[in-house]
Design a protein around this nucleic acid. Structure first.
Lengths: 353, 353
DNA sequence: TATTATTATCGAAACGTTTCGACATCCATT
DNA sequence: AATGGATGTCGAAACGTTTCGATAATAATA
């Protein structure tokens, strides 16, 4: 445990000044090839590595990226944002950054609800996943830190963001059902105030009318308070209580789709024969439930990785430009959807009323 | 964006020296109640918060905990260690630490394979999950950093660790099968060189002989190279190729149990009627596969949380004592196991040969 | 009463970098 | 021959804390 070498030791060994060594380390400024070589050699021989703390103090830079998630999104069970987070962890490695995670409540008051890494100036930029209090975002903005939103957008303000293609995804989902012959297609929305859910809802409506299908409001549920499994169950029950019965439903996310399937099973229905269900997100369990869920695949880890790449770019750049990245989505057809068969639906429908 | 206040501003405002303010902030040393109050007030009025970097430089402390994971364990698909990691992230918040994640390969050579946070003195302690190269562990030890192992143990060396109760779990699993009347119980081991898997294997053998059941080596597979889904499929195939057929198997983890079930389905078997399967870990998907898997539940997030608690204790303590925490496990009975029925097994057995 | 502990505060020296301005050299331009 | 822009190196001043030893006052002990 002999003391570790400092930049001073390197300078001495190379017969140069501190500043020159620093220039080599950060390769900034002018350094002749021979000098650089001498420094590199000294560094190598001493096994020198700069101290993060000293560096941070002098350069006002931390080498960290903050990741902010709302508490409700970060139940450990929530697989969606967790995947995004893990995606950032991976990509951060490639850029020599570390990720500092924090969760925040829906309320925001200074300074109690300010993430510690902001107060301590311990991050060079911030990734925000999902919806968080706008005042917090504004606060970070005022700090002059680059901000990157993932799966969220602040109305009337422009921040860089990674978005998934919600419209495309919803179109793929609904058109898949239509191509299977379905016409009475329900929509299970959950918390429609979230921008992503709202986009999916819009696209669903567009897609229906584009195909000359009537929008039956009785088949649409947007008043659920959340987008969890139980909201999916509730939503299907709501529709049935209205005395109608879709032959297929598009759920705003997989969790709700799963809830919907559970509820359908309670009624003794066979899936997909009695009702086709398509979700959105493609979370892990979706592939393993019975029947495996047809859904829109979202590249969650990729979104996290893209977030880091984009943010790092912003951190390093002198100019603060706004960029939006749209991640593609894919339709994954599994076993929860099938061709519309008027008969089956009709018979079962009879047994419902 | 006026400059943020420093400790100097606080001292000035309170009419005290820097050092006194520092004493208050860290509440160390002697400070009179009135002085403390004055400082606190000044801090509040200025909205002061100490800078992590400056603090780190002066105190040789980072406020971070390193989390090291072997690369093979950290495919994003690997749900087990991922959960442990997320558990640490949560608990770290409660102790005002941040987690710095890194993955390492199986080889270790200085300095190329030394995690960056170690070189940069950017962590106050290290959590190591699963098996990593022993030389790396020794290296960290030499650095004088507290180490905490999760689900791993270095032979002949003592490090603090969080262990799950592998023996108990295996006993619960095997006794469950025995209580259902099974006698020809196979074991799918995978990579037996991992301490946890080895323990489960030992306990399986003990449990069998304790109940006067013969250990049939043809029903035991320990030569698979890994513990992934495909290893489970392979293992069952291996057993069948030996011309025998267990009525139940205990797989060393859920991934292999799932592979085993998949393979059984390929043979047209019904589960649990034609073969009972019990796993270990209780990963998320286990509850959702068909049939839902009977398994040993491991409290993964809790292990991560315990790891942080224990490590933080070690970081703060002056003495370096070794502690081992054993996390309990639970048997979760779902649908992949059922009572032994000699008939069913016999008939199907006939159709195999 | 003299001596020693305890309590309270302070000044100054680290901690290990980056960065800015100064200076010197060299080469190309006028 | 004088001027000026690149190029290369350096010294010194930050950056914002903690911590150590010194000093002083007060309380406890002999």
């Amino acid at each position: 445990m002999g003391k570790r070498p400092t930049i001073r030791d390197v300078a001495q060994k190379a017969g140069l000044s501190l500043s020159t060594v620093s220039l080599v380390i950060n390769d900034s400024g002018y350094v002749s090839p021979e000098t650089r070589e001498k420094v590199l050699q000294a560094i190598d021989e001493l096994g020198y590595h700069p101290s993060r703390a000293a560096r941070g103090l002098a350069s006002k830079t931390s080498g960290n990226i903050g990741f902010i998630l709302s508490e409700d999104h970060f139940s450990l069970a929530e697989p969606f944002y967790t995947k995004i987070f893990l995606g950032t962890e991976f990509e951060a490695r490639n850029h020599n950054y570390y990720i500092l995670l924090t969760t925040v409540g829906s309320r925001f008051r200074e300074p109690d609800n300010v993430p510690r890494f902001l107060l301590e100036r311990n991050v060079d930029g911030v990734i925000i996943a999902g919806r968080v209090n706008e005042k917090l975002i504004a606060y970070i903005d005022r700090l002059g830190l680059p901000i990157l939103l993932v799966d969220y957008a602040v109305p009337k303000k422009h921040y860089s963001s990674i978005q998934m293609d919600n419209r495309k995804g919803a179109h793929l989902a609904v058109e898949h059902l239509i191509s299977l012959g379905h016409r009475e297609i329900g929509f299970l929305g959950g918390d429609i105030s979230h921008p992503s859910i709202a986009e999916r809802y819009q696209a669903y409506k567009e897609c229906m009318t584009d195909h000359n299908l009537t929008l039956d409001s009785r088949l649409i549920v947007t008043e659920e308070s959340g987008t969890a499994v139980e909201n999916g169950s509730n939503a299907l029950r709501t529709i049935l209580n209205r005395g109608v019965r879709p032959s297929a439903v598009f759920a705003a996310n997989d969790a709700m789709a799963i809830g919907c399937i559970q509820e359908a099973k309670v009624h003794g229905w066979k899936i997909p024969d009695d009702i086709s269900v398509v979700g959105f997100d493609d979370i892990d369990t979706s592939a393993h439930i019975e029947p495996p869920l047809t859904t829109i695949k979202v590249f969650k880890e990729e979104m996290g990785a893209a977030a880091v790449r984009t943010l790092v770019q912003a951190v390093k750049a002198e100019t603060r430009s706004v960029m939006t990245v749209h991640m593609p989505v894919e339709l994954v057809v599994r076993k929860s959807t099938t061709r519309y068969s008027g008969n089956a639906a009709a018979t079962t429908r009879a047994s419902v009323g």
